[in-house]
Simulated scan of single mutants.
Amino acid sequence: MADTIAAKFAESQLTEITDALSSGKFVSVRKILHEAPACDVALILESTPPKTRDILWQLLDSDYHGDVLEELSEEVRNGIISKMLPDTVVEALEDMDTDDLVETLSSLPDEVLQDILVSMDVQDRYRAEKALSYGEETAGFIMNTDTITLRPDVAVDVILRYLRLKGDLPENTDTFYVVNRSDYLIGSVPVTRLLTSHPNVTVAEVMDEEPDAITVDMPDDQVASLFERYNWLSAPVVDEDYHLVGRITIDDVVDIIREDAEHS
Results as ranks from 00 to 15, higher is better:
residue 1 M to N: 01
residue 2 A to K: 09
residue 2 A to C: 02
residue 5 I to A: 11
residue 9 F to M: 14
residue 11 E to T: 13
residue 11 E to I: 01
residue 13 Q to T: 03
residue 20 A to S: 15
residue 25 K to Y: 10
residue 28 S to P: 09
residue 32 I to Q: 15
residue 32 I to P: 11
residue 35 E to F: 02
residue 35 E to H: 11
residue 35 E to W: 01
residue 38 A to W: 06
residue 44 I to F: 08
residue 45 L to N: 00
residue 46 E to W: 03
residue 55 I to P: 04
residue 58 Q to N: 14
residue 59 L to M: 10
residue 60 L to W: 01
residue 61 D to Q: 10
residue 62 S to K: 15
residue 62 S to V: 13
residue 65 H to E: 02
residue 73 S to G: 15
residue 76 V to C: 11
residue 80 I to G: 02
residue 82 S to T: 07
residue 85 L to H: 12
residue 87 D to I: 01
residue 92 A to Y: 00
residue 93 L to A: 09
residue 97 D to I: 07
residue 99 D to V: 00
residue 106 S to I: 06
residue 108 L to I: 02
residue 108 L to N: 00
residue 112 V to C: 02
residue 118 V to T: 04
residue 126 Y to L: 00
residue 129 E to P: 00
residue 130 K to Y: 10
residue 137 E to T: 05
residue 139 A to M: 07
residue 145 T to N: 15
residue 148 I to H: 12
residue 149 T to Q: 11
residue 149 T to H: 07
residue 152 P to I: 06
residue 153 D to S: 14
residue 162 Y to W: 12
residue 164 R to C: 08
residue 178 V to K: 05
residue 185 L to V: 02
residue 189 V to N: 05
residue 189 V to L: 03
residue 193 R to W: 00
residue 194 L to C: 03
residue 197 S to R: 02
residue 206 V to Y: 08
residue 210 E to C: 05
residue 217 D to F: 08
residue 219 P to F: 10
residue 222 Q to C: 06
residue 223 V to M: 05
residue 227 F to D: 00
residue 227 F to K: 14
residue 228 E to M: 11
residue 230 Y to A: 10
residue 233 L to T: 14
residue 234 S to Q: 13
residue 238 V to G: 01
residue 240 E to R: 14
residue 245 V to D: 00
residue 251 D to P: 03
residue 255 D to W: 02
